[in-house]
Write a protein that binds this DNA or RNA. Structure first.
Lengths: 217, 217
DNA sequence: GGCTTGCATATTGTATACAAAATGACTGTG
DNA sequence: CACAGTCATTTTGTATACAATATGCAAGCC
């Protein structure tokens, strides 16, 4: 049994189950069958259980002692709320960036943004990530930690798959860049909050399209 | 081997290790010895590993694949930042409460606050919890989830052990109650942010006192 | 002397085995 | 026919066993 386990099998389990949930193959409320996953991935239950704990902490699963793990009942309101919170944090960070960024950082931000506007669709995803990464660098450590946590709960690479995301993102990013370059903290906050709000709508639509909220049979 | 484990041994492990960290028995950067915990609690490594995953997701441990789990290097800045974030969220929720609460809820809030001011020290902790619980009821589901997450990362019952916490809390709570009763969303937000900021300072001091940041020998 | 190399040991990660509890069907009873 | 109680089956939770990797130390080399 050769395997390329780069970070442990639990990670593989996390990715597998998360995908199944986000694809709509596992429906909200449905029970997670550990034995089934063991069969699918050819793995024992030890790493599976550790993976399920992770997904539980991310809010994708509801784990009840002695009963098992169930797909969390996530509503449209939950997704919107999630991104609203994300926006609240990210907005605060953008405001920090507006007041603390050096000239070099401002230039770098503009540079990334220009590349982003001109990039092909698959490069755009990477540059989008770099863009937000740079801004988030202005945040203190614990804030960055929380942002990572929020990113993983409703994974990235989600927004990037909705039609027309790029042109929308370019416009939003432009506003954000302008505000940070102007050192206008409040405008940066507002622009970032709006951007994340729109990302939330997009994510919500993407989940809708994947049949996430379809009635069962 | 009789045990009263009502929620699984992993929970016991989480509580045990968390306590050890917060008491300063385990220092930041120090390695977690699974075998040692197994001996301490008379438990096998299976529930231990699951517990460590939980603490990793809470940010109290740093888990490196194939290397093990280490106590996270949490600085004063991290603690302050943590409560600042907490305040950002809780402030938003307080603002919601100010605009959405019914007359009954406002009355209930005032009632709890009066009891709180008159309570003995050990009852105060419970009423403090009820107070915040009631306000957080105004938040949407995902926000409540995030709040629970933040509460667990730097566990509650922490602030409540710093000297003079009650009188400080009474004053803060009074301001919050007034703002919510006045339906002044912005005042409620500010008051709540200030309250959490002070809680952060208190928590930071408590950690200091427990020797959390002491230099090792 | 300082640095690599190789091996013994310790520790993590995974698999399997076993114990305890929940689930669900079946039976008998009102 | 509804329904409570019992028992077989399934599934979770925990313990143990084994495999793979990391760690630490000692010997050899520059």
């Amino acid at each position: 049994m050769t395997r390329i386990t780069r970070g442990g099998l639990a990670e593989e389990v996390v990715a597998h189950v998360r995908d199944q949930i986000l694809r709509g193959e596992l429906r909200p409320g449905q029970k997670i069958d550990q034995e089934q996953i063991a069969e699918d991935l050819d793995v024992s239950r030890s790493p599976i259980r550790e993976g399920l704990v992770v997904l539980g902490k991310e809010g994708l699963l509801e784990i009840t002692p002695r009963r098992g793990a169930f797909v969390a009942e996530i509503s449209r309101a939950d997704v919107v709320d999630h991104y609203e919170l994300f926006g609240l944090i990210a907005g605060r960070v953008a405001a920090m960036a507006a007041t603390t960024f050096t000239d070099e950082q401002r230039a770098e931000l503009q540079h990334i943004h220009v590349l982003f506007t001109e990039a092909s669709d698959d490069e755009a995803a990477r540059l989008n990530h770099e863009f937000h990464q740079l801004i988030n660098g202005a945040a203190p450590r614990r804030t960055r930690w929380l942002i990572r946590h929020l990113e993983r709960s409703i994974p990235a690479g989600f927004f990037e798959r909705t039609p027309g995301w790029k042109s929308e993102a370019v416009a939003d990013h432009q506003t954000i860049v302008d505000a940070i370059v102007d050192q206008d903290a409040d405008a940066a906050r507002q622009a970032m909050e709006l951007h994340l709000h729109e990302a939330g709508v997009a994510a919500s639509n993407a989940l809708e399209a994947s049949g996430f909220w379809e009635e069962s049979e």
